[in-house]
Design a protein around this nucleic acid. Structure first.
Length: 888
RNA sequence: GGGAGCUUAGCUCAGCUGGUUUAGAGCAUCUGCCUUACAAGCAGAGGGUCACAGGUUCGAAUCCUGUAGCUCCCACCA
């Protein structure tokens, strides 16, 4: 069968993916082997594959495929996250486009639409992962809102409630007026925003006047639209400038409401005017001051961010419109002293980008204090290893300053909080309505089911994702620390490695550790590999708005999934951002093609069983075997350190340079008089076995092309796959052998460079002389073949020759006679320059060695190396000088 | 404002507890080649005061201090 000149991924990829699926090769069941488990960071069910997913999932697939080939029972559990805010927003938008308002339909109707939407669009991202070659156990696909997983969430809530960790309280929360929900501190992004500082006049009640005789004080604010909710004006207790104000009252501009002057050292004296308006309902700090001073709380902004009736003026206006209008009103009333430009940090909602409004509302919280202690310890003690470990600092900082977790969200899409209100406002928390009724009846026996009203809110999405490594295996476990784990959980948990993004280290990773510790008494994974953010060439984050993210599916169509995987991996070091550029993917495609053509070369050979191996073939085989073992060893080491891209680069060079450029070029049968000669069977079989080893090493990175070629090199039975082949274990090898081959390579490169500089065709055979001292004679056939040398003469000393060129490899001297092809003057200059270079080097080395302190203080080994350097350099200089004499 | 990290070739990055020739790789560049596997290729070459300034040391890209620039995280200065 003739193979095409270029590798065509489209002919191969779908074929093998369906083959893997058909034979259930990704599926795992507990058995006697050691498990290797990864749970996918569940992408949003609404999501579409982007470059970040590509990166993240390629890494996971590499680890899983490699574990499988290392003899482990590998299981990669896929699934999606219900992503309450993001999904609800999409469904709301879709309904709106159909003319339906969320507020006009019931919760049940809305959820029906949402589920319908999920059925239709929910699987897209998982289907896209298949194109990438992801070897997930699709039979285990989970969704965070699967009934069983939702049950786990409810049980967890009930468990922590009964443990006393969950409480309900009025809190100042970050309110998203567009999403109409509270969001956690972590979902608020502070951005420097241009705003204005307004200096307002608050009239003093009574006869008191300022030292310069004015009847008003000046207060600076960025939010003039909230003055109607002011409860006091605050000065610092030690601020003598305002002594006259103590115990006085001032009047809120426009609405003429009297409020007291209070004193609190929260106020910074040298900021603004030193007078702070206190608005407990609309500022987190003011709320705290209000609590200290028992100030009334007046909430004048509604859930949409509009002023309500309590504001008295500008009722119904949006907060930003109101700001503009009130400034105008203040100006007209001559109550605006001045305006300054000001840059301040404003909080924005991560999901909707709306300006966050601090708002008092009733929310559910989970106490974090106790949970976070153990989660911090396991990371400190490296029971969970963060890769790279620089994230330990950030992690510690967060865990030491952890706030209680606001777990309620004012949405419908998600797990509804299992709190049931009694008519009198009391509530019970139970896993089901039946249990809730029973509990309620203990309080009031006359209650009926219809008297109970369930809390409207749902739980934060992370409140389900933090159970993920447990609930995908045993959804009955969360909430029941003492219950026996089921078979899957007992076998697969704890998982091994988690691959995720640093930005969700706290949202997700820390909390999974907490849940794992609480319910399984074991931490859920031992390594957390944190990937960087995929950015474009200019370093900008890839985003839909910028349109700078390539479509991964198109990329895979153009360059092949293997090519894209390689392109991503080549530039990935843990924790560093990835500057993505299509040229990297091109490199990946080119490499696929190289592998393809290497195979084309081998499979085109005629094998002759009678033929003896040539000398160079034998050396090449021995050398490559040694190099293979060394590579296997290094690759193992790099994987242990999670240096995936280094491992890949090593393999890349091993294949391209060592295998193709050297090994294959050496053993390649000659082409004589238009006829391809044959290869001996021993060398051929060895070559096939090397190629087989290479395919296996490459398979975790490039699953498709390696499967294709693995089926080409031998007839395979239906269901057989390279995926389940065992990775070779490195054997001891001769470093000496590799070293002498290295000398041959350097000699060859020198001769080739000489040809290039002297314009001598590679086809023209040359002679080569080498001095016996230090020359490993076994490499002669390699040099002859690869440098096109007619005859390597090993001699004791060079004759005086008229013209030729010499070079050294280490301290071994080589000489190429080049009668009439060389300019003696030029050669002399060259040698002189080289002598000068070595002399400079010698000088620096001898400076070191003549320094007593160095000889005394440096370790003996280092001194020895320096001595060796000196003697080598001296030898080289001597050799060069002799050459010089011969030439003159 | 606090904390962490980064700055090495045109680009992306290695360089682990200071000593392995006068700093490496891949890509890109340049030169010569369409040589019966591959021009998505082959052969060869060039390219760096290791951000800057001090210090410690026999010895610094590597350790310390400061400066500049960049990035990220945290934070309520109205």
């Amino acid at each position: 069968m003739a193979l095409s000149v270029k590798y065509d991924p489209s002919q191969v990829e779908d074929k093998w993916y369906s083959y893997w699926l058909k034979h259930k090769l990704f599926h795992s069941e507990p058995d006697e082997r050691e498990p290797y488990t990864i749970v996918i960071p569940p992408p949003n069910v609404t999501g579409v594959l982007h470059m970040g997913h590509m990166m993240n999932n390629t890494l996971q697939d590499v680890l899983v495929r490699r574990a499988r080939m290392m003899g482990k029972n590998a299981c990669w559990v896929p699934g999606t996250d219900h992503a309450s805010i993001a999904t609800e927003a999409k469904v709301v938008a879709k309904l709106k486009a159909e003319g339906i308002n969320k507020s006009d339909i019931t919760r049940e109707e809305f959820l029906r639409h949402a589920w319908e939407w999920r059925e239709k669009h929910g699987g897209i991202i998982l289907e896209q992962l298949k194109k990438l070659g992801a070897s997930c156990d699709w039979d285990r696909t989970k969704f965070t809102m699967d009934p069983a997983l939702s049950k786990a969430v409810i049980n967890t809530f009930v468990y922590f409630y009964k443990k006393g960790y969950i409480y309900r309280g009025v809190r100042m929360v970050n309110w998203d007026p567009e999403g109409l929900t509270a969001v956690s501190d972590e979902e608020v992004i502070h951005k420097e925003t241009d705003s204005k500082f307004y200096y307002l006049r608050y009239k003093i009640v009574g006869p008191t006047r300022t030292p310069d005789g004015k009847d008003y004080i000046i207060i600076a604010t960025t939010r003039p639209e909230t003055i109607m909710a002011d409860a006091a004006v605050c000065i610092h207790p030690e601020d003598t400038r305002y002594d006259y104000l103590r115990g006085q009252k001032v009047v809120i501009p426009l609405i003429n409401k009297e409020i007291p002057i209070i004193e609190d050292d929260y106020v910074t004296m040298d900021f603004g005017t030193g007078c702070l308006k206190v608005t407990p309902a609309h500022d987190i700090n003011d709320y705290a001051i209000g609590l200290r001073h028992k100030l009334p709380v007046l909430d004048i902004i509604d859930e949409h961010g509009h002023l309500n009736a309590k504001a008295q003026i500008l009722i119904g206006e949006d907060r930003f419109v109101a700001r503009k209008k009130i400034v105008k009103m203040l100006e007209e009333a001559q109550l605006l002293e001045k305006t300054e430009d000001y840059k301040s940090q404003v909080g924005y909602s991560e999901r909707t980008n709306a300006v966050i409004e601090p708002r008092l509302s009733m929310q559910w919280f989970l106490k974090m204090e106790d949970l976070s202690k153990e989660a911090l310890r396991v990371v400190e003690d490296d029971e969970v290893q963060l890769i790279p470990d620089k994230f330990k600092n950030t992690y510690r900082h967060w865990m030491e300053n952890v706030h209680d977790w606001c777990i309620s969200r004012q949405l419908w899409w998600g797990q509804q909080i299992p709190a049931y209100y009694l008519p009198d406002g009391e509530y019970v928390v139970e896993a089901s309505k039946e249990e809730a009724l029973a509990a309620a009846q203990k309080i009031n026996p006359s209650l009926k089911a219809e008297d109970l009203i369930q809390d409207e809110d749902v739980l934060d999405t992370w409140f389900s994702s933090w159970l993920w490594p447990i609930s995908v295996f045993d959804p009955d476990k969360p909430g029941f620390p003492d219950r026996e784990p089921n078979r899957d959980l007992a076998y697969y948990y704890p998982t091994n490695d988690l691959i995720t993004a640093p930005e969700i280290l706290f949202f997700w990773v820390a909390r999974m550790i907490m849940a794992g510790d609480e319910f399984c008494h074991k931490i859920p994974f031992s390594h957390v590999y944190l990937t960087g953010i995929v950015r474009d060439k200019q370093g900008r984050k890839m985003s839909k708005q910028l349109g700078n993210s390539p479509d991964p599916i198109k990329l895979m169509q153009e360059y092949g999934a293997d090519g894209v995987r390689l392109g991503m991996l080549l530039c990935t070091s843990a924790g560093n951002d990835i500057l993505f550029d299509e040229s990297q993917v091109e490199q990946g495609r080119n490499f696929s093609n190289k592998i393809w053509n290497a195979y084309r070369l081998i499979q085109g050979w005629n094998v002759d069983g009678q033929l003896e191996s040539r000398a160079e073939d034998k050396i090449a085989v021995e050398w490559f075997a040694a190099k293979l073992n060394r590579t296997l060893e290094s690759v193992n080491d790099l994987f242990d350190k999670f240096r995936i891209s280094d491992a890949l680069m090593l393999i890349y060079k091993f294949f391209w340079d060592d295998f193709c450029a050297w090994y294959l070029e050496i053993i390649k049968p000659a082409f004589v008089n238009g006829v391809q000669s044959s290869i001996d069977k021993v060398t051929y079989d060895k070559t096939i076995s090397f190629f087989d080893s290479l395919l296996k090493i490459l398979h975790p990175f490039m699953p498709f092309i390696t499967e294709e070629l693995w089926h080409n090199i031998e007839e395979r039975k239906e269901g057989e796959t390279i995926m389940l082949e065992q990775m070779q274990k490195p054997q001891p090898y001769s470093a000496e052998l590799i070293h002498s081959f290295d000398i041959a390579q350097q000699a060859v490169v020198s001769v080739r460079a000489l040809r290039q500089s002297k314009n001598i065709s590679p086809k023209e055979p040359l002679a080569l002389q080498v001095k016996a001292a230090g020359y490993p004679q076994s490499i002669t056939p390699i040099i002859e073949k690869m440098a096109n040398i007619s005859d390597v003469q090993v001699i004791d000393s060079f004759d005086k020759v008229s013209a030729g060129q010499s070079f050294m490899v280490e301290t071994i001297e080589f000489y190429v006679p080049l009668d009439g092809k060389i300019d003696v003057g030029e050669e002399v200059e060259k040698i002189k320059a080289e002598i000068a270079r070595y002399e400079g080097f010698l000088k620096s080395v001898s400076a070191k060695l003549s320094n007593d302190k160095f000889v005394k203080n440096a370790p003996a080994q280092v001194v020895d190396t320096e001595r060796k350097k000196m003697s080598d350099a001296t030898t080289k200089i001597e050799n060069l000088q002799k050459r010089l004499e011969m030439l003159s």
